[in-house]
Structure formats: structure tokens, C-alpha cells
Design a protein around this nucleic acid. Structure first.
Ligand SMILES: [Mn+2]
Ligand SMILES: [Mn+2]
Ligand SMILES: [Mn+2]
Ligand SMILES: [Mn+2]
Lengths: 218, 218
DNA sequence: AATAATTTTTAGACTAATCTAAAAATTATT
DNA sequence: AATAATTTTTAGATTAGTCTAAAAATTATT
């Protein structure tokens, strides 16, 4: 049996290892899990014994196939629940994460397959993140950060890097949602802020904002 | 903060104290929780310190107002989730309990109030048990056990005492569901089995079955 | 190559929840 | 009222997960 805490560690390792990093460090995990490095070492030993990770002292960890499978299944559950909360229970996209963190640990194969069907097999969650299918396959889309778009580009918002409530509320306030079309008009060399145009309205956004919004150039 | 385990103990004490028993014994709790009496004593002390129960050594426990509130809220969540699973996710009534046991511990006020609204404020769960409202009020209906009905009574099934999978599947097999109308035709003195008529079909059911089915005499 | 800084691991302690075995209290039976 | 049976509590261990402080290993800087 796998515990809730083990699941959370595996998920953290998965997220940290996602972008090419294949030896996730103890400190990185500690930061992600908001715990101490010594606790991570203990847990990592246990995960290693249970064959969820490969671990060599001082060398960090990588998920085994078994570990990766578990991680992807948790991510699938998390994102399906987020869709449910937004689509069926009228949550806004900045309210769902916390609840999904709890719901993702509910153990029932049937629950998830029925939920998936009930939601009509969604492929993206409310933040534009792909939902792994039953087999663990994840659809990749070619999105770039708005900060990387070129002047003159016509873009469509497809996701967020950061899904903190503060950031999502900022987007709401400025009428930016997934699917919103915008044009990159100008980049200010001094601070890398950019001017974008949504419909007829111009808006200046900081580099930090642009660094957290994914777009597709159309 | 209240732990998942504490919630389960409080719920067990609530269920055991429901029918007039006001000093729930250590052994009764141990049996309900499938644990040892010594573990119960430890937990009961903790619940007492946290003011969820009143406890005097060797005298059993009763829930405080605070404890009762928590218990009722868990029951509310459990039953709402059961309705969700049956109505929206096509679970059958013998499959929901186990999953609801997990879902009842999810902590989010908004989740439950939105779920309640989404389900259109149901008052009974799939087993005929009343769903407490937001304020903790529980509707009482005058149901009796089928074993207590008199010969000649026209009845309608309104609930089950036992909601084990075996019992519920027996009912399914014999086309007995909540809302099913039946007439009590005969009681066999030897074993207290009774003959009932559903529509035109006669069926003999054991005393044990009749003891676990709630009906309303119409 | 030596030293300094950082990261990681170990050692030992703590809390929550559980267990077994034994002691104490209560309840039932003679 | 004394004894027996049962229930409940205590004492002492165990496991999961966490922490602080110190030791060991790795990496960076001179
Ligand atoms: Mn999320
Ligand atoms: Mn998300
Ligand atoms: Mn149930
Ligand atoms: Mn029920």
C-alpha cells in the first residue's frame, strides 16, 4: 500500500524532473514539499526500497517506471477533479487547486473512469495543462511563454505557468482567459515589459507576467 | 485541526449513540472501528481533551455539541457523495459506500455547498438515509422494519438497515428497490419468514431480510 | 591542491496512531 | 458478600513522518 505522503513525494519528484532534470536533488524536493532536507532523505530511502525511485546517496533520485506511472495517475486525477470543480460546481480557476490536492488521493479506479466519462473526456484542465489519458499518455502542445513571442505576433492564450491565486486573479481582472486572443505590440528594452492588444484595448504587462503565460502563435 | 482518524472515531461514536445510547462503551467503539480497546482508550482521551466528547474513566463517552456537529457534517458529506456517485457517475447503490468513506473527509465548505446545489438539494441518500442540511437538521420519517409490518399491510420500501453489498445485491436480484410497493401476505410462525407480493409476483423472504428493510405502511 | 561553502546524510528526539500483555475496575454469578 | 468473568485502562513497544543539530560528502573558490 502507498501512503498519501508517499504519493505527494512521488508527485513532487515527477514535477521537478519533468523538464529534463533526471536527478532530482534532496533540497529541491524539500523546497517543493515545504519540509526539511533530512525528512526528504528518510522518505527517499523508503521510496527507493519500495522501488518507486532510483536513489544513490548524494546523487539525488529519479522515478522508476512504477513511480512514473503513479505520478501520472495522480496528475490525471488532480486535473480531472479541477475540470469537475470548474465545469460542474462553478468554482473559478483560482479556487480549484487546493481542493484538487485532496481529491487526487481518493482511491477508486471506477470513480476516475466514470468522472472522466461524465466530463466527456477532457484533454486540458482549467489552467491549460494536459490531462493524461487512462494509459498515461500525455498530449503535448507547442506553447511558448508570452515573453518569448515576437513583436507583431498574433497569439492565443493556452495556459499558465504559475497557477497561484494572485496571478490568476490578475488575469481575470484584465480579461485574460484561456482562449483569449492577443497581439504583441511593443517590448520595452529597459524592463522587458510588453504592450499587448486584446481586441481594441491596449495593456502593458510586466516581464514577470509574460513569463507565466503560455500562448500559441497563430 | 482535526485528523482523519479523529473524524472516524467521532462518526463511530455518533452512529453508536444514535439510538438512545448515551454512554458509548470502549468495546463498542473498538468493534465499530475494527481496532483494539486500548487504542480506543487512548483516542477517547484525546477527543476528550479536545472537547469533542465527555468522558469519565470506565463510564464510556458521549459526544459534546461540538462533537455532534462534526459528526453530522461528516454524515452529510458522506451521503451527498453517495448521491453524486449514483446519480451522476452511474454507480450502483452497493458500490458507493467505500468511496464515500474516503470522500467524506475532503475539507472544503464550498465544495459541499456547491455539490449540494448541483445535486438539487437531495434529502435522502441511495439507501434511504436522510441527508442533514447545512444547519445540521435531519428530517425524520416514520419508517418501520418490514419484519414489524402486519399481514395485509400495503407497504413502500424506503430504506435499508444494513447496506452491505451482499444485502443490496439480493434486493437488486429480487427487483426490490427504494420506492417499490409490496403487500405483506403471510407470516410463517416457524421461522418468521414472510410472503410478500410485488405487483403480481409472490416472494418468500427470510426474517433476516425483513429485519433489514425499512418500509412505510401506506 | 587546499580551503570554504553548500548540500546531504546521520543521530537522536518527538507526535499520532496503533499493538500486546498485564493491572485495575466494574459487573455478573454464586 | 465473596468470587468469577468481563471490560477498561495502563505500561511499554512499534511504525510513519517529522524535526534539530551535528557529521560527512560534494562542489565552488581561491
Ligand atoms: Mn492544480
Ligand atoms: Mn491545474
Ligand atoms: Mn454509506
Ligand atoms: Mn448511505
Amino acid at each position: 500500500m502507498i501512503t498519501l505522503t508517499e504519493e505527494n513525494y512521488i508527485k513532487a519528484i515527477y514535477h521537478l524532473g519533468k523538464y529534463g532534470v533526471n536527478n532530482v536533488s534532496t533540497n529541491a524536493i524539500a523546497k517543493e514539499m515545504e519540509t526539511k532536507a533530512s525528512s526528504v532523505t528518510d522518505m527517499v530511502k523508503k521510496l527507493s526500497e519500495k522501488r518507486y525511485v532510483d536513489y544513490k546517496k548524494y546523487q539525488g533520485v529519479t522515478l522508476t517506471e512504477k513511480g512514473k506511472e503513479i505520478a501520472i495517475n495522480i496528475v490525471r486525477k488532480h486535473r480531472l477533479w479541477e475540470v469537475f470543480l470548474v465545469e460542474k460546481l462553478n468554482f473559478s480557476w483560482d479556487e480549484v487547486h487546493e481542493v484538487a490536492e485532496q481529491l487526487e488521493h481518493i482511491k477508486s479506479k471506477k470513480l476516475i473512469s466514470q468522472l472522466d466519462a461524465f466530463l466527456e473526456f477532457p484533454t486540458y484542465d482549467p489552467h491549460g495543462d494536459p490531462i493524461p489519458d487512462k494509459m498515461g499518455n500525455i498530449k503535448k502542445i507547442d506553447k511558448i511563454l508570452l515573453s518569448e513571442a515576437k513583436i507583431g505576433n498574433d497569439c492565443i492564450c493556452v495556459g499558465v505557468q504559475d497557477s497561484s491565486s494572485d496571478f490568476l486573479k490578475y488575469l481575470d481582472k484584465n480579461d485574460i482567459a484561456l482562449g483569449t486572443e492577443l497581439k504583441v505590440c511593443h517590448r520595452e528594452p529597459f524592463d522587458n515589459s510588453i504592450t499587448i492588444k486584446i481586441k481594441t484595448k491596449e495593456l502593458i504587462i510586466s516581464n514577470m507576467i509574460a513569463n507565466n503565460l503560455f500562448v500559441k502563435v497563430s
